[in-house]
């Protein structure tokens, strides 16, 4: 073979423009690079997010002058004590907790098989279609979806029409309707992390389990479940915390039932008692922190 000496085409000379100098500066100054990247988002995070949350915490320890309706900035534990000991707040807290737990359980039970089908059974094409289908409801307004469920669940709604021939009835408006509607609203947030978690489990692990004699159930219990547990927990954090803070759905389909969010809402609005509202708002925050602490102890957060 005769070797052809490669012909050299010289690159055009580099121009030392401003952009080029800037890039060169950033390339050699890692700290400047980091500052450039993070200043704006950090500013937003600190001012808009952390400060607002801190104000909420502080306000809970203030009170409202019952004559003038002005906020008195004297430290007091009154609001906290009211919230902890008042039977109304205890009942509503337990109810909210129960709804959030029920929603989470329903969502996980629905999400697991769907996510498994998406990640391990469906063809790549079907997989893409399903991801879009799961995401589609998120394009519609929250209010529209809640009102849609109100109409489905009403006494002459489609659910009644569907189940009445079999002797069933719509649950009507109330806590069951709230649980159904919230489960529907948060389902995509539970499916997606579990789907992503299952995607990361190599097929060969499932094959290896079958190869070694493991049938479907031992494979799920001993291999799949431990590996996707962190993803399941990530999903439950969404459904649990979103349910704890919700007050619109329960207003629309919950009948007369109230959740913690409703109490916050009335105290901010009608009652004009921002400190008490803040104290109530601390309840879900404390519960969520408790939940995260429990989850952390299982080691599930290490893999998030």
């Amino acid at each position: 073979m005769t070797t052809n000496a490669p012909t050299r085409h010289p690159l055009p000379a580099r121009r030392a423009g401003f952009a080029r100098k800037g890039s060169a500066f950033l390339a050699t100054h890692p700290r400047a690079r980091l500052a450039f990247l993070l200043t704006a988002p950090l500013f937003w995070l600190v001012v808009v997010y952390v400060v607002a949350l801190a104000l909420l915490l502080v306000t809970a320890f203030w009170s409202v002058d019952s004559f003038t309706g002005e906020i008195t900035t004297e430290w007091t534990m009154d609001n906290i004590i009211t919230v902890l000991t008042g039977s109304l707040y205890q009942t509503v807290t337990l109810r909210t907790l129960g709804v959030a737990l029920a929603v989470t359980i329903v969502d996980v039970l629905l999400a697991l098989p769907i996510a498994f089908y998406m990640a391990k059974v469906a063809s790549p094409r079907m997989q893409r279609i399903l991801v879009i289908l799961v995401l589609t409801p998120l394009w519609a307004s929250y209010l529209v979806k809640a009102y849609a469920w109100r109409s489905v669940l009403s006494q002459d709604g489609i659910l009644e029409w569907l189940v009445s021939p079999f002797g069933g009835h719509t649950p009507g408006y109330g806590l069951p309707a709230t649980i159904i509607t919230l489960s529907y609203l948060w389902l995509p947030y539970v499916i997606l992390p579990i789907y992503a978690g299952l995607e990361r489990v190599p097929d060969s692990l499932l094959e290896a389990s079958g190869d070694l004699g493991g049938r479907a159930w031992p494979t799920i219990r001993l291999v799949v479940f431990p590996l996707v547990l962190p993803a399941i927990i990530a999903g439950t954090i969404f459904s649990f915390s979103l349910s704890l803070g919700d007050y619109i759905t329960v207003n629309i389909v919950g009948g007369a039932s109230q959740m913690l969010g409703n109490l916050v809402y009335t105290n901010v609005g009608a009652a004009n008692n921002l400190p008490l509202a803040s104290a109530i708002a601390l309840i879900p925050i404390v519960i969520i922190f408790g939940y995260l602490f429990l989850v952390r102890r299982t080691g599930a957060l290490d893999n998030l």
Binding site: S204, L205, E207, A208, G210, D211, G213
Partner: peptide
């Protein structure tokens, strides 16, 4: 697979 008396060593080892 779980009813066959054959076992596999996988290319990626597939250790749990």
């Amino acid at each position: 697979p779980f009813d066959r008396d054959v076992n596999t060593v996988f290319q990626d080892y597939a250790l749990f």
